[in-house]
Structure formats: C-alpha cells, structure tokens
Amino acid sequence: MASQIDGPRIQPKAGKAKQLVVFLHGYGADGNDLIEIGRQWRSFLPDAAFVSPHAPERCALSPAGRQWFPLTMRDPGERWRGVVATRPLLESFLAEELARNDLDESKLALVGFSQGTMLALHVGLRLRRAPAAILGYSGILVAGSEPAEIPPQFGTKPPPVLLVHGEEDSMIPADALLLSANALAKADVPTQWHLSAGLDHGIDNAGLLHGGLFLARSFGVPVEFGRGAR
C-alpha cells in the first residue's frame, strides 16, 4: 500500500543511492522547508538520496503549513501521544523509501527540526534495525511515563545522535538540548551536541556544517575538512 505522506526529493549527485537522508520538518512548515539543505550537503554526501515528506495534517495554527501532530502547549502529555500516534505512519514511509532505493535501515539517516526532531528521535530509536544516524535541530527528546521507554533495546548498537540548538531559542529553550543529551547518554545512546551562539529557533551555517560532517562520518563517507570545520 502506498504511503499516506510524500514530499520533494533530491536524487544522488553520483549514480545510484547508497544512503538515504529523510528530513522531518517543524510544526507549521512542510517538506519544502528543509529539502534545500540536501543540496548543500551533496558535497559531503554525493551518493545520498534526500527526501522531505509533508506532515499528514494541516496545521491548526497555520493552515498553510502542516503538522505531524497537534500542539497546544497546554497539555504536558500531547507530545508523547503525538509521537506514538505518528510513528506507524512514518515507519511505513521509511520502509517504502528504503525499498525504493534498495537500501536497509543501516543506510538511513533521520534529520529533524523542532517537532520533526521529536519524531526523528522517537522513531529512529525504535526501528527494528538501528539507522546510521539521527540529527536533531532545535527539538527535544519526548519522554513517556516509563523510563524504559527511552529508548528500547536494539539487537545491535544504537545509532549515533547529534543535537544542535540555538543558544537564544525562544520556542524550545536551549536547556532542552542538555536534558535530551543527558537522557540519551543514560540510555547508552552515543550523543554529541552543538550550541549555536546567539541563534533563535532556527538553523545557522555552523549547524549545517556540523550536521553535514556528522552524517558523512556516520555513513563512513570520507570528507575533507574545510577551514573552520571542527
């Protein structure tokens, strides 16, 4: 059965796809919001296919945009219920995209922004086989009521995670990065983080560079470090 979600794609720069990068946009945006990042990362990942699906629902607060699940900011349990409810839909899409490119989860990276980061972490840590990487911008690890739910046990080692956040984020405060990183570390998930000085709720050039290099390393793709890279 065809997936209920779809969005823009960028084909590999060089031939057949050897990796798949899936972008998950934030609340009130759509797949077009992140897909152009794929073009910037093609120099790091020439063999990667990129796809950025539109979330399934019209955004309640911004009808021109989309939402993965409703957010009122008044219900402390809505994020958890939202990621749980959306997980099957995203897993179906990922399976279809991997099959389309003749790849398995070990060649998959999930990249989220804000609400998309919540979903990327929740789903990426619960796939039957660990993905190559999870990269989250300006988001938070959503926790359930039971500590064991964060995250489940993998048959193999868990995926590496990079969290990137703006120091001056007014939407999801930067403390969310440290809380998420600590929770992941306690669950033995290898986690790195980067805090962008002076940045509000967004992605800056430093964050894009760190993210692109992180994905290349996670996929085992050789990269040349440009001036200013760390």
Rank of each mutant, 00 (worst) to 15 (best):
D169L: 04
D169V: 02
S170R: 07
S170N: 07
S170H: 00
S170M: 04
S170K: 05
M171F: 04
M171A: 03
M171S: 00
M171C: 02
I172T: 04
I172E: 00
I172F: 06
I172R: 02
I172Y: 05
P173I: 07
P173F: 05
P173Q: 07
P173D: 02
P173M: 04
A174H: 00
A174V: 08
A174R: 06
A174G: 04
D175G: 03
D175H: 04
D175Q: 13
L177T: 08
L177R: 03
L178F: 11
L178S: 13
L179G: 13
L179H: 13
L179R: 15
S180K: 12
S180Q: 12
S180Y: 12
N182M: 15
N182G: 12
A183V: 09
A183E: 13
L184F: 04
L184W: 00
A185K: 13
A185W: 07
K186E: 14
A187P: 07
A187W: 05
D188S: 10
D188T: 03
D188E: 13
V189K: 01
V189P: 00
P190H: 00
P190E: 01
T191P: 09
T191D: 08
Q192A: 14
W193L: 08
W193M: 07
H194F: 11
H194N: 02
H194D: 02
L195A: 02
L195V: 10
S196W: 06
S196Y: 01
S196R: 05
A197H: 02
A197G: 01
G198N: 00
L199F: 05
D200W: 10
D200V: 04
H201W: 10
H201L: 05
H201T: 11
H201V: 11
H201R: 11
G202E: 12
I203A: 11
I203F: 08
I203N: 12
D204Q: 06
D204W: 06
D204T: 03
D204Y: 04
N205S: 09
N205H: 02
A206T: 00
A206L: 08
A206F: 06
G207T: 05
L208G: 02
L208D: 10
L209A: 13
L209R: 15
L209P: 03
H210K: 15
H210M: 15
H210W: 15
H210C: 14
G211M: 12
G211H: 11
